[in-house]
Design a protein around this nucleic acid. Structure first.
Lengths: 147, 147
DNA sequence: ACCAAATACTTGAGCTTGTCAAATACCTAT
DNA sequence: ATAGGTATTTGACAAGCTCAAGTATTTGGT
């Protein structure tokens, strides 16, 4: 009985937090999506851009892993990025099967914009007091560590 | 100079928080997406289900608003839900242009599952201490109020 | 009452994103 | 040499999304 109640209290706090978390995330997704569309990018393309390293070329397969999706999906996403001159497929030295994805200067530049856009805090967070923001950051940092 | 620095400190805290927020949200999206697929639902369908009221039928247009998408998109989403017998289109009394969306018993039931699934806190949040969870919930509640 | 304009929804074209299965090209180890 | 494994592409298909145009119905002005 006591255990049951204690547990239900705990889960209810986490659930309440999750509902709020989800609501803020959803709103932000809509806002960011609109901004990305104005840059002519879908969410997946933007995410792919973020996952590429301006310094170090990565194979398609590495991108698929980071995007948590099928390799054949990456083909299409990279096609569109390449058509816009943001990315280049270079055959990797040593293994001609792998395509080393390289950001072009235009790609690097747009990537910066995307990064800025996506790390822009939503209204909800920006309007918190600085001490709340700090507390939030610290709690989320602990949360991420526990992954 | 001082103002500039103070500002940059503030934005950097919010930005750091946002990056963590985004990372947790992204991971959760993937996990929830997989669970929804096992129920045979896409994210949009699930979200639509959530936005319908088991008590009070709503017109398509109301759903479009809540989904932040075009009305013509809702047609397709509701088509799929209706084909599975989760929702019914009834002509509204008083205005035959309007379709009143009504959840069937199966729809109500599946909606419950979806709600439970989507408010299930991610690993990252669940593994926080109870006091962190409480603090998180309270901060997010303040954040949502500021919308 | 009549007709033009507004409203609710559907349809169709076209795009991106996603999956799966099969093909291609290349590498590696026996 | 060759059998099997790996990286990427292709093709078929479906969801999700937008825009423009179409249909049905209501509303409002005259």
């Amino acid at each position: 009985m006591m255990d049951g109640m204690a547990l239900s209290v705990e889960t209810s706090v986490a659930h309440e937090a999750q509902k709020l978390f989800f609501e803020i995330g959803m709103a932000q997704r809509v806002k960011v999506g609109a901004a990305l569309n104005e840059l002519g990018l879908g969410f997946a393309q933007a995410h792919a851009l973020r996952m590429l390293d301006p310094q170090e070329p990565r194979p398609m397969s590495a991108l698929a892993e980071r995007l948590f999706c099928d390799a054949s999906n990456v083909t299409g996403i990279v096609d569109r990025l390449e058509k816009r001159g943001l990315v280049e497929r270079r055959s990797a030295e040593g293994d001609r099967r792998v395509k080393a994805l390289t950001l072009t200067p235009a790609g690097v530049e747009l990537r910066e914009e995307v990064m800025a856009l996506m790390s822009e805090p939503p209204e909800a967070i920006a309007s918190l007091s600085v001490s709340d923001q700090r507390a939030l950051r610290d709690i989320l940092a602990r949360a991420v560590e526990n992954l």
